[in-house]
């Protein structure tokens, strides 16, 4: 089977440390370190398991981003992917999810054959969960989102257990299909030392807009229906706060006050 895993390099918005805070109380985004988008790692793990069950399968990673995003391709290969493609071009900058999905879909067409496309449910910088389904739509594929585990795959169909609101569901889709993997799926295995040694200086195929036969009106900022009108930083400012100790006097006074004004 031929598996393509979409991965994104993202700022580590889940761990905003004091060093990334400005004196004004806002987050300095450029000070955040970059990481392999966590749910894309969950997707990679499911892909590696499939490959183990179907010897001869290949995993190709695809990422779109700055040249530095080649790091996620390398990381993927260290953990079990076979190959990777970096899609990078200044003309792709400023893309919203729709323009991103179009660009990724064009790159996937260029990769050619595939049975399964996998990616994380969402990326932690945008939390939109839109790119997976939009890539599926662009390629005319069925999709299974919020996947927690691939239960079986016979090369013709795939059966997944997926998270739904208030429960779980088992669904079957014909291949080729696009699967998005939830953070509650199995965590990704760590790097394999042999793979690290063998791929330390690995070079990856790099494509620009010219390589993917993209329609210029559908990429980057031009191809994005959404416009950012304004961005406001959240400022964490102190309001009038009363500080109490854990003493009986302080706590009984607080409870009394809250009871008296019918708060509790």
């Amino acid at each position: 089977m031929k598996i393509i895993v979409l991965a994104k390099q993202v700022p580590d918005t889940h761990n905003v440390g004091p060093e990334a805070m400005t004196p004004e109380g806002t987050v300095n985004r450029s000070a955040l370190p970059t990481v392999f988008n966590p749910e894309d790692l969950n997707a990679l793990e499911q892909a590696i398991r499939l490959k183990e069950q179907h010897p001869g399968s290949t995993i190709t990673m695809l990422t779109m981003g700055l040249p530095k995003a080649v790091e996620v391709l390398k990381e993927g290969v260290f953990r079990g992917a076979d190959d990777g493609v970096l899609l990078t071009d200044r003309a792709l900058g400023g893309a919203d999810t729709l323009a991103t999905s179009y660009s990724l879909a064009q790159a996937i067409r260029k990769i050619g054959e595939y049975d399964i496309i996998m990616c994380g449910r969402q990326a932690i910088d945008g939390d939109t969960a839109q790119v997976g389904p939009q890539v599926a739509e662009k390629l005319g594929l069925p999709q299974i989102t919020y996947t927690e585990e691939i239960l079986s795959c016979d090369g013709q169909t795939i059966v997944c257990r997926r998270h739904i609101d208030g429960g779980v569901e088992t669904v079957e889709a014909p291949l080729p299909a696009l699967i998005t993997v939830n953070g509650s799926a199995a965590p990704c295995r760590t790097r394999n030392v042999k793979r690290v040694m063998a791929n330390k200086h690995r070079e990856f195929t790099t494509w620009g807009v010219a390589d993917i036969d993209a329609d210029a009106s559908q990429i980057g900022k031009t191809g994005s229906p959404t416009n950012v009108k304004a961005v406001k930083s959240i400022i964490f400012k102190a309001k009038e706060t009363r500080t109490l100790t854990a003493s009986d006097a302080d706590i009984s006074a607080l409870i009394k006050e809250l009871k008296e004004n019918n708060t509790i």
Partner: peptide
Amino acid sequence: ATVIGRDLGPRVSSALHSGLTAD
């Protein structure tokens, strides 16, 4: 912005080439 809405919304927006803002 439920599991269903986040599965369906992007699919519809892609087909109609319209902007979608999540959450």
